[in-house]
Structure formats: C-alpha cells, structure tokens
Amino acid sequence: MTTGGRNLVLLGVGSILIAFIMTGVSLAVYHNSGDIYLDRSRPGFLPDEEELKEEEVKEEEYEFSKTGTLSEEVLDEYLKHLKEEIEIIDSYEEPFNTGLLSDESLGIPAEDKE
C-alpha cells in the first residue's frame, strides 16, 4: 500500500472513531441532563393520533398585550382568559395521581409484616 493510500485509510478510520466518540458523548449528555425524559419523540412516547388531531384543532392562543393603558375592562379580559387557561389545566384528570403506584393498583397484597 502506498503512503497516500495508508493515510487515506487512517483518515477514514479516524473519522469513524471521532464520529462514534461524539455520538457517545452526545447521548450521554442527552441522558444525564434529563432531556431524554422531556422528549416525546423517542420510540414508545410518540403522541397518539388523538393528541395530534387536538393539536391541529387548537385555536390561536390569546396573549395579554405588554403595551397599552390599563383599565377595569382590560383587567376583566385578562382575568377571563386566565380563568379559561386554568380550567383547561384542571380538565386534565388527576395528573400524577399517587394512587396509580399503590400496592393495590399494581396487584401487590397489602403490607402484612410477619
């Protein structure tokens, strides 16, 4: 093998090694930073069809303007929309319900120390 050929092989192997190391580091950062748990695009966590439809139907969101004068009417409008937003949050049924992890829910008999 000529020197040029050997250098070319070394360059190829080196590039592959660097790519592996960089991918490993990226995955470690992705996992250790906790981003993996906030990412719903990973397999098994993709939004179902119903959710996607809901997203499409979603109306344009209201945003309280940062400029302008303040009057009772303006604050009434703010309160009306904020209450609606809280109602939407409340409509999510029992998020992080602690009962789901209870012995009973998981089919483990009640504690019965001998």
């Binding site: 719903r40 945003e63 937003e85 992080f96």
Partner: peptide
C-alpha cells in the same frame, strides 16, 4: 410524559403570556 407536556406547555402560557405580560 403526556401529562408533563400538557401541563408544561400550559404553565409556560400562564407565565409568559399572562403573568409576565401583565
């Protein structure tokens, strides 16, 4: 994961589009 995305996005709305703006 579904609950977090739902709640997280609405919390962000409350904070940035209402409370901070006001």
């Amino acid at each position: 994961a579904k609950a977090r995305v739902f709640l997280g996005s609405h919390y962000e709305t409350v904070l940035s589009k209402y409370v901070t703006s006001l």
